[in-house]
């Protein structure tokens, strides 16, 4: 049984048909990537999983359970955490307050303390800047904080929306290293990326989205060799 399963999901923003029958699966322990251009429906797909966008038809199933009845704020209690697009941190709160918010869904004080230590080991920069207002962090540090905040929920499935957006190439490398490290420690990852090149290097499988539909799905290896993907997303002729 896959950990996460989207079955023929259709979703709308008003009259705009954003998702036209998305079906994907994510197995436990995997890194799966969704690639596609702007407006292809990548972020909308993540939103249907987190409950911020309710599917009109189709279902989102986590561990065999339909998520439809759960409001958005309950999804994190199911073990799903989100790293929002554009370093979605709480900009006027301190680094520490952001991390505390990440653990809002939990009440196990000891576990939270452990995870805070783990976050600081993974991102030593955040430890140095613990009491700083997070909006004054650099772009890379904000991305670290957004990731660390999601980890504070101790998720089994982490959704990441464009973690490489707007970062310098050297930082992109380290962000992807950390994604792999988090995955090795046992967190399943669904990664949305425009940077198909990097995403297909760390993912096991991938889906290609175009205008709200999945046009291709294969192993990462297979997608890298696909002529259409090479042309449209990897910049190769």
């Amino acid at each position: 049984m896959p950990m996460l399963e989207l079955n023929d999901v259709h979703a709308y923003y008003g009259n705009i048909h954003a998702l036209k029958g998305i079906s994907i699966t994510v197995d436990e322990g995997e890194i799966v990537t969704l690639i596609g251009a702007n407006g292809a429906g990548k972020t909308s797909t993540l939103r249907t999983i987190t409950g911020l966008l309710k599917p009109k038809t189709g279902s989102v199933i986590l561990d065999g359970e339909d998520l439809a009845p759960y409001p958005a704020h309950k999804i994190v209690y199911k073990g799903v955490a989100m790293v929002p697009e554009g370093r979605g941190i709480f900009a006027k709160l301190t680094v520490r307050e952001n991390l505390d918010m990440g653990a809002f869904s939990r009440s196990d004080a000891d576990g939270i303390k452990q995870d805070l230590e783990r976050a600081f080991t993974l991102f030593p920069r955040l430890k140095e800047r613990e009491s700083q207002i997070s909006g004054t962090l650099s772009g890379g540090e904000q991305q670290m904080l957004a990731t660390a905040r999601a980890l504070m929920a101790r998720p089994r499935l982490m959704l990441m929306d464009e973690p490489s957006m707007g970062l310098a190439p050297v930082l992109v490398e380290s962000v992807f290293d950390i994604i792999q490290e988090i995955n090795k420690e046992g967190t399943t990852i669904l990664l949305v990326e425009q940077n198909a090149h990097m995403a297909l290097q760390i993912a096991q499988r991938g889906y290609v989205l175009q205008t709200g539909e999945i046009v291709l799905s294969d192993s990462a290896e297979g997608l890298r060799k696909d002529p259409m993907v090479q042309k449209a997303y990897l910049g190769m002729e």
Partner: peptide
């Protein structure tokens, strides 16, 4: 929206 995602009703 971010508050909702970390579990705030």
């Amino acid at each position: 929206m971010r508050a909702e995602m970390v579990g705030v009703s």
